[in-house]
Each structure stands twice: as structure tokens, then as C-alpha cells.
Simulated scan of single mutants.
Amino acid sequence: MSQLRGVWKSLLVGGLVALLAGASLGPTQAQEALERIKAQKTARIGLSNFAPTSFVGADGEVTGVSPELAKAFLKSVGADNVEGVVGEFGSLIGGLEAGRFDMIAVAMQIQPKRCEQIAFGDPELQFLQGFVVKTGNPLDLRSFKDIATNPNARLGLLTGAGQIRFADVAGIGKDRQVLFPDFEKAVAGLQAGRVEAVTGAGIALKHIVLTLGQPDVEFAELEVQPSDENGKPVIAVAGMGFRKADNDLREAWNAWFHQARQSGEALKIVTPFGIAESDIPGLDVTAASICP
């Protein structure tokens, strides 16, 4: 069974995670992506340390919901060697466009602005937003509006995260949006008093709180989910990211994923990461229904 080789280095002093791609894909990009992957039997996936959707395990291997799904798909098209390219979340779209890897496998939220830059596969996850707050939730923060209307509340977000859009729509000023490269640093910022809440996908935040095991922070369910520009509550969905030119690879992923959903293979792959069937959107929810 082919193994996913995780590539990982220590955090730099400035908090950056180095992209470990080595050389870009170079001239072979002119070749159809799927054809190249089949011929070379090798593929690269870009991701962040973002459990449980993608992370580096104790054994140094890259794993998580999206990498494991990507590995199964790539094996089905003959890629016996899959390399993980680990970087900051905010750098992934740029890394994909620069040819450092073939696809993004980090359960990235599908949003119209991102659709302008890259193409998304049909979504593999849906999730509600949540907060991490200090134990007892001293400011009683249970919605994005709660933060917008409390001048003493600052919100921690990941650089490039989809929740920035929700914060903007809710009216949280940029001076009260504090960006971090990853959730570990964001929660450390919460503990240090730099922010009063950290937001993200509930499944990721619950995993972070459980893993940290720190008594001074807790996960807070939101009473009201964030709204879009039209005032409608948003249930976020996430998918694999592809270069727009690589339509062949994206279509192959969609075909494989739909078959894996129907056969139960996809659910079997993601269940070990705490994902239930209710966390996977219906087959009628497609990237095309979200992207303009």
C-alpha cells in the first residue's frame, strides 16, 4: 500500500511554516495534469497542519480527512507516490498557482472569491463555525454579532481563512481582527490576552481544544451561525482545490468521490478522524452550485 510522505520542518522564529515543495512542477505543467500524474506515478498535495482535516502525525506522516481522501483518489489513477507539501494556510492558493503541488487537500472552504482564483472539487465536508474562548466565556460571545457589538472583543482568525469574510459581513472592524498563521498560535494568543475569541470550523476547534487539554480555554457553540452578504446563515462546505487549467484532474476527482460516496468508501476513510455522515454534504451540493 502506498504511503503518503509528509514533509515537515520546525516553525521559524517568526511563526512561518516553510513550504517544502522543492522545485516547482516546471515544464511538465504544459502536459495535462492527470496524464502527467499517471505517467510519473507521482503527485504532490498541498496542505497545512490543520487537524483533523490535515496534519502531520506523530510518525511524521501527513494525514487527516482531506489527505487520506486525496491519497485514495490518486492511488486509483496510478499515483503510487504521493508527496505532502506543508505550508501556512494562507500560502496554499499561491503555492498551487505557482505549481508547487497538484492539488490542495486541506478542506478549504468553497467561497466565491476563492473561486475566482482556483477551481474546487465537489465538497467533501460541511461544518458549522465555532469559537474557542477562555473558560466560562467571560464576555458571553456566542455569535459574530456579539463580537461586532462589543468594543472590547477581538477575534482571532487564520490568515487567509474563510471566516474573515464572515467577520467583515458581521461588521467586526479590521482593527479587531487579529490574524495568526495556525490555530495553535491563535489559541496561545487567546491565552495571552491578545484576543477574546478564536474562530474556525467547529470540527477543527474541538480537536484543538481536546488535543491541548488546557483548563483555561474551551470550545463554544455558536447560537447564531454567521451570515453571508445577503443576510442568509452560512453552512460552510469545503473541497479540494485545483488549478483552473487542470480541469481533467478535477473532473477525475469528482467522478471518484461521487462513486466513493455512494459505495461507502469515502465515509470509511474519514470516520477515524471523528467525521460522521452528517458532516458530509449531499451529492446535490456541488462546487458549481456555490461558485459563480
Rank of each mutant, 00 (worst) to 15 (best):
V169K: 12
L69A: 03
V224F: 14
N137G: 00
G241P: 02
L12Q: 13
G95R: 04
G193H: 11
L11D: 12
K75C: 08
L19D: 13
T28H: 11
D122E: 07
P138C: 03
F73I: 00
G200D: 11
V133E: 10
D102Q: 00
G162M: 09
R194D: 07
W256Y: 15
K9N: 11
E32N: 14
Q163V: 05
A245G: 02
E68I: 01
A197R: 12
P27A: 15
G264Q: 12
D59F: 02
A70L: 01
G264P: 05
I37E: 10
A201D: 12
I208H: 14
V86W: 13
L11G: 07
G264K: 14
I280H: 12
A72T: 08
P27Q: 13
N254L: 06
G57T: 11
V198H: 12
D140W: 08
L212H: 13
E265F: 04
G202T: 02
D140I: 02
A33D: 06
A266Y: 05
D140P: 03
M103V: 04
G87V: 00
N150G: 02
A287D: 13
I290P: 01
A39L: 05
G156D: 08
Q259S: 14
F219G: 09
V56K: 07
Q214K: 15
T28C: 09
P281G: 01
E88N: 11
R44V: 00
H258T: 12
A153Y: 13
A276T: 15
A107S: 14
I280A: 09
R261P: 02
E61D: 12
I45G: 01
K206W: 03
A33L: 05
R5F: 15
I275G: 07
L158W: 02
A161H: 14
H258E: 12
E124F: 14
V234A: 08
A255I: 06
L212Y: 13
T159A: 12
G200V: 01
A58T: 10
L47Q: 14
L267G: 04
A260F: 03
P281A: 01
L92M: 14
L212W: 14
V65L: 06
Q31Y: 05
K134S: 06
S263H: 08
P281N: 03
F144D: 09
A98K: 04
G156Y: 05
D228Q: 08
G15C: 02
G90D: 11
R36V: 00
V62A: 15
D80F: 11
L34N: 10
A30R: 13
G46R: 07
E83A: 07
G156C: 01
R114H: 13
N150R: 05
P27L: 05
V7I: 11
P292F: 01
L92Q: 15
T149G: 05
A204W: 08
P27E: 09
E265Q: 15
S263Y: 06
K244G: 02
W253F: 14
